[in-house]
Write a protein that binds this DNA or RNA. Structure first.
Lengths: 228, 228
DNA sequence: AAGTGGTCTAGACCACCGG
DNA sequence: CGGTGGTCTAGACCACTTA
């Protein structure tokens, strides 16, 4: 015998898909399932926990486990370091630093960083190249407090890569959208003005405080893939 | 004491971030950590498994556990039923069916569905409205084999919603990109021709075979948010 | 108050795979 | 071959939440 937790998960999933347990319905308790299926409650727990994490079940103490009424599709994707993403496609990678200076951020960014007015942040702009063609343009604000002495040379290593491997992150927020390229952006990315760009806006936090916010503009043709 | 697995995870994470264990380095075995931290190996296993799933550790039998060299940021997001997403913003929802007919799909779609040439699929086009304003335009191909007799009335329930709650899905693929609105799309979505649209292309499979493919065009201003 | 899921423990066996 | 992670078990206690 020796039923594994994946076997249990498969069986439960089968019953859900076969409408043996209807959406919204209560399913048996872990203890009952363990007895019926012939395994320990721990094993059932592992299987049900996994299905709940996938969005197919809703579990609450005392209330029991229900089949999700509106099965939310939960997608996942990896956000690799830009260099690795490009090299992973078999292309050569290069980074070109466009601007690096201390500057007072616009009000929206300042309030995001909760920094008092008048305190400058580090403004970084740069272009990631794939096979010497523009692939990704980044505009970044960075809290200089995270930089060591001496500061890293962002002409040699992109802020993206330096941050990932030197600053411990604890959380953040990310959003995707589409925007028309303004003339300057079109010039930098080598595309037509007005071209539809895939935009990624990210705020990264460490110890509960934002340390960097970045707006990434992908050259036309970029696709972000995810698994369901 | 009673250290929980989340405490163990926190401690391991602390050591990673403090560079106590450098990227690429081997960390102690589960057994060693269990003894050092004063808990059962099972508890350590749970914590390390979670960190590995998050992309911070790499584990292999016999080889041991290493701190990931290139910490991949894994993001997750939920894709709700369109109606619920709109209503969740406090807006009223409506669906307008633009077209429903049997038609032979283009070659790319036919090969995707692995359907023999000459066999028609169901072509559906429709518009989701938020507060009576265009929010999302969908173009869909659907395998008619999944439809019951009589077929659902897609003027009353959107294909999106009907499929989610009536067809068990087993997997699929999803990709996001940006595109300029063509004149027809601009007319449907009520935006300017050439406006940057957020595009979502999805293929849904059941029992290993594609059952529907859809191209979703979001009205300008749409943002997809995810958690890191 | 009591039922249900969440987790810990100690021990065990096994699958995998590197040396 | 042997070390390491992957998992199962049986029992226990606890936290949460609803009835």
């Amino acid at each position: 015998m020796a039923l594994g937790w994946e076997d249990i998960r498969t069986e439960v999933l089968r019953r859900i898909e076969a409408r043996h347990w209807a959406p919204g319905a209560l399913i048996p308790t872990e203890e009952a399932l363990a007895e019926e299926l012939g395994c320990a409650r721990t094993t059932v727990n592992r299987a049900l926990r996994d299905l709940a994490a996938a969005g197919l079940l809703e579990r609450r103490r005392k209330a029991g486990t229900r089949v999700a009424l509106h099965p939310v599709r939960r997608a996942r994707f990896d956000i690799p370091v830009t260099r690795l993403e490009i090299e992973g496609r078999g292309q050569s990678y290069a980074f070109h630093l466009i601007e690096e200076r201390r500057a007072e951020p616009p009000a929206a960014v300042a309030s995001l960083f909760r920094s008092p007015p008048g305190v400058p942040l580090l403004r970084l702009r740069g272009l990631h190249l794939a096979d010497n063609r523009p692939a990704l343009y980044e505009e970044r604000w960075l809290d200089p407090a995270v930089l060591p002495e001496p500061a890293p040379d962002f002409r040699r290593i992109s802020p993206n890569e330096w941050l990932v491997s030197h600053v411990p992150w604890t959380g953040g927020d990310i959003a995707f959208s589409a925007a028309n390229a303004c003339p300057e952006e079109a010039d930098i990315l080598g595309c037509a003005p007005g071209a539809a760009l895939f935009v990624c806006e990210r705020v990264t936090e460490a110890e509960g405080r934002p340390i960097t916010s970045v707006r990434l503009l992908h050259a036309p043709g970029y696709r972000l893939r995810a698994d369901l």
